[in-house]
Amino acid sequence: QVNIAPGSLDKALNQYAAHSGFTLSVDASLTRGKQSNGLHGDYDVESGLQQLLDGSGLQVKPLGNNSWTLEP
């Protein structure tokens, strides 16, 4: 069960990665100043990332080996 409060997208993504045990490689300029609506409930990694990114204009991309990145 994930419980991440709304706020900074950077912070939300870092909390989610730490909670879910995956690696997220992101260029900080992509997420700077963006906000997230947070995340509450049970999600697989990709669904949770998509939910956190909702409205940010960013997309999640798998890199393999439980690693992910973001792209515009």
Results as ranks from 00 to 15, higher is better:
1 Q>D: 09
2 V>I: 11
2 V>P: 04
3 N>T: 11
4 I>K: 04
4 I>W: 01
4 I>C: 06
4 I>M: 01
5 A>K: 10
5 A>M: 10
6 P>L: 04
6 P>D: 02
7 G>S: 07
7 G>R: 01
7 G>V: 05
8 S>C: 14
8 S>E: 10
8 S>N: 10
8 S>G: 06
8 S>H: 06
8 S>I: 06
9 L>R: 00
9 L>Q: 01
9 L>C: 04
10 D>E: 13
10 D>S: 10
11 K>H: 13
11 K>V: 14
12 A>S: 06
12 A>L: 08
12 A>Y: 02
12 A>D: 02
13 L>F: 00
13 L>N: 01
14 N>V: 12
14 N>P: 02
14 N>K: 15
15 Q>P: 01
15 Q>A: 12
16 Y>M: 04
16 Y>A: 02
16 Y>N: 03
17 A>R: 05
17 A>C: 09
18 A>S: 10
18 A>L: 12
18 A>Y: 09
18 A>G: 07
18 A>P: 03
19 H>M: 15
19 H>G: 08
19 H>W: 12
20 S>G: 13
20 S>A: 15
20 S>P: 06
21 G>Q: 07
21 G>K: 07
21 G>M: 05
22 F>R: 02
22 F>L: 10
22 F>Q: 07
22 F>S: 05
23 T>L: 11
23 T>Y: 11
23 T>E: 11
24 L>F: 10
24 L>T: 06
24 L>E: 05
24 L>R: 02
25 S>R: 07
26 V>I: 13
26 V>Y: 15
26 V>G: 08
26 V>M: 11
26 V>H: 10
27 D>Q: 06
27 D>L: 07
27 D>V: 06
28 A>W: 13
28 A>D: 10
29 S>F: 10
29 S>L: 09
29 S>N: 13
30 L>H: 05
30 L>K: 00
30 L>N: 03
30 L>Y: 06
30 L>E: 04
30 L>Q: 04
30 L>R: 00
31 T>F: 03
31 T>A: 03
31 T>V: 14
31 T>H: 00
32 R>L: 12
32 R>I: 12
32 R>N: 09
33 G>A: 04
33 G>W: 05
33 G>L: 06
33 G>Q: 05
34 K>L: 13
34 K>T: 02
34 K>G: 03
34 K>I: 10
35 Q>H: 13
36 S>V: 05
36 S>E: 01
36 S>A: 06
37 N>Y: 09
37 N>V: 09
38 G>E: 02
38 G>W: 03
38 G>D: 01
38 G>T: 02
38 G>R: 02
38 G>K: 01
39 L>Y: 03
39 L>V: 06
39 L>E: 01
39 L>R: 00
39 L>G: 01
39 L>I: 08
39 L>F: 01
40 H>C: 15
40 H>D: 08
41 G>C: 07
41 G>I: 03
41 G>S: 01
41 G>H: 02
41 G>M: 02
41 G>L: 02
42 D>E: 13
42 D>T: 14
42 D>P: 08
42 D>G: 08
42 D>Y: 15
43 Y>K: 00
43 Y>Q: 03
44 D>Q: 07
44 D>C: 08
44 D>W: 04
45 V>Y: 05
45 V>S: 05
45 V>C: 08
45 V>K: 04
45 V>I: 14
45 V>T: 08
45 V>E: 00
45 V>W: 12
45 V>P: 07
46 E>N: 06
47 S>E: 12
47 S>F: 09
47 S>T: 12
47 S>W: 06
47 S>L: 08
48 G>V: 05
48 G>H: 04
48 G>Y: 05
48 G>N: 03
48 G>Q: 02
50 Q>A: 12
50 Q>E: 10
50 Q>K: 15
50 Q>V: 12
50 Q>I: 13
51 Q>E: 09
51 Q>K: 14
52 L>R: 00
53 L>I: 13
53 L>D: 00
53 L>P: 02
54 D>Q: 15
55 G>M: 05
55 G>N: 06
57 G>N: 08
58 L>E: 01
58 L>W: 03
59 Q>F: 10
59 Q>H: 12
59 Q>D: 09
60 V>T: 06
60 V>N: 01
60 V>L: 13
60 V>F: 10
61 K>Q: 06
62 P>C: 13
62 P>R: 15
63 L>E: 06
63 L>Q: 07
63 L>R: 06
63 L>D: 07
63 L>G: 07
63 L>Y: 06
64 G>F: 04
64 G>D: 07
64 G>N: 06
64 G>L: 04
64 G>P: 07
65 N>K: 11
65 N>T: 09
65 N>L: 08
65 N>E: 10
65 N>Y: 08
66 N>G: 11
66 N>R: 02
66 N>Y: 08
66 N>L: 05
67 S>E: 14
67 S>K: 11
67 S>P: 00
68 W>F: 14
68 W>R: 04
68 W>S: 04
68 W>V: 06
69 T>M: 12
69 T>W: 07
69 T>Q: 11
70 L>D: 04
70 L>R: 03
70 L>A: 06
70 L>Q: 05
71 E>L: 12
71 E>P: 00
72 P>V: 13
72 P>A: 11
72 P>G: 07
